[in-house]
Design a protein around this nucleic acid. Sequence first.
DNA 1: TTGAAAGCGCTAACAC
DNA 2: GTGTTAGCGCTTTCAA
Lengths: 332, 332
Amino acid sequence: MNVTIYDVAREANVSMATVSRVVNANPNVKPATRKKVLNTIERLGYRPNAVARGLASKKTTTVGVIIPDISSIFFSELARGIDDIATMYKYNIILSNSDQNKEKELRLINTMFEKQVDGLIYMGAEITEDHIHQLKTSPVPVALAATIDSSETIPSVNIDYEQAAYEATSLLIGNGTKHPIYITAQEESVVNTKKYDGYLKAIKEHNKEVQEEYIITAGTSYQSGIDAVTEILAMKNYPKAIFVATDEMALGVIHGFQDNGIKVPDEVEVFGFDNTRLATMVRPTLTTVVQPMYDIGGAVAMRLLTKYMNKETVEEQNVILPHQIVERNSTK
Amino acid sequence: MNVTIYDVAREANVSMATVSRVVNANPNVKPATRKKVLNTIERLGYRPNAVARGLASKKTTTVGVIIPDISSIFFSELARGIDDIATMYKYNIILSNSDQNKEKELRLINTMFEKQVDGLIYMGAEITEDHIHQLKTSPVPVALAATIDSSETIPSVNIDYEQAAYEATSLLIGNGTKHPIYITAQEESVVNTKKYDGYLKAIKEHNKEVQEEYIITAGTSYQSGIDAVTEILAMKNYPKAIFVATDEMALGVIHGFQDNGIKVPDEVEVFGFDNTRLATMVRPTLTTVVQPMYDIGGAVAMRLLTKYMNKETVEEQNVILPHQIVERNSTK
DNA sequence: TTGAAAGCGCTAACAC
DNA sequence: GTGTTAGCGCTTTCAA
């Protein structure tokens, strides 16, 4: 079998406790003893068993991450932020894709708790009562990243989606289109609702009434952006500015127009959301709302970790990070 | 404290063993007993502790995944395949980014083993002797995904990069450019070398000598694709076909030319590699080598899991998956 | 500064 | 079918 702490103790003529102390860098060990132990650890190729340690200490130094889809450009950037900060604090990440499927989400939360994660970062469209209930079945700290819980029961990190959407729409209006089109992602989520509210607010400030046909519900993919354009082109005299709920869809929108010989931004302006790497990987480059994905992930992790490590009480449960708008070439 | 298997046993008037049996779906339990136990599990809200289970059974039902960068579009698609198959087999994934930094890679391998993963999927540029040595410090099965170990010591899943690059280059030559340019990613990796060899093979078949200046070493990013174009435009009379080592760089190349008023594919053809989602998210859409990322991840996981689960001997350690070429609109 | 010993919560023989 | 009993490899009092 593998070499255990007991083997090291025996070979070094000390007790298991002493070996444990040197492995855990406990200062209460005489330098000579420490050296002796270190040597036999080296000699035997001893590697501490984190599972045994976890059982004894009730800490696993791993945090769970539940994410809709790691292959999404938006979420993979978030995940990268999370892992970096986790690494910084000596944690590892158990990562699972939920596909925003409620059953799967609930099951994953349970699995994470079974695996005794020290903390959990959760991303998803909708936080229902069932989610909250499931989350509360364990005292393990949880934080939501880019995910809103309207009840504000669970700590979270977000930007002000409503305000951001309001600003984006207003900019488009200021550019000369009184009632820009809005393309929203189909999924039900508070984040989407907030974006929509922001759009609506700006529209109402400049229009007697809102035109329902200018609000298009699409999928969430690049292709649905393209498809949405078909819908738009079917309208006679459509507005010449489009605000799109995500960058990926916005790329689809740009290409949809271009494929039909319509020039962006000369003939129609396009505004995205997120500022993923995609935003600079199109021509024209995409004007968009900057959401600090990496920080949302990182800040959440930090929060969560410090909170539970030092058992300190958190001042502000629901963090709103600043957003901004970058104007690139898809708008005038 | 939390409710343990012991609490359930006491409350249900059975032994721990029996509770364990029903939790693990062992058939040797009388239906009535099972029901009774299930009820008290429900009533007490008992949740098995996977860490304790892992210690006792020496199985954690988690596999480690070491990946260069989860925010890379290529790798995140791979990771998605891995997690899906892992989920199918009831495993979870511990995911860590290595940034292809050797020290970090070595450290991560060790961490994964400390955490007692049941298997490990490794992705990285270079497999050195140190890597192999580290990997061999544990009997845990390891599989390389989209990563080549020239010594063929470690099981792996790849495509035939050399052949694919040969075909791509040949196609470009067939289109009329005798000596296409090749833009390679800077990092040292066997995968890159193979691609380069394939390119060279095709070039040599049609040219007396290879023009060193037509081989450009760039970074690995979108931006380095753009930068490479600057280098190309500085040559008087450069070849009118470019083969690029990755899709992301290829997008940069396309945009680099377009930004300089040069039309793709009319004035210059561009050929990518990987067939990430990016390939259809440009105009013109990108002709590229299809590498089945999702399957590479999935197939690897399957291999690894079946191998160690059933302890079956593997027929072919080093799997080569078929590749293909999709011609889209960036070539003639 | 060090050691002895009691768990952590579960699985896995083995016995009945 | 069910219970008893050792551990799994480590941390953590508590004493010395």
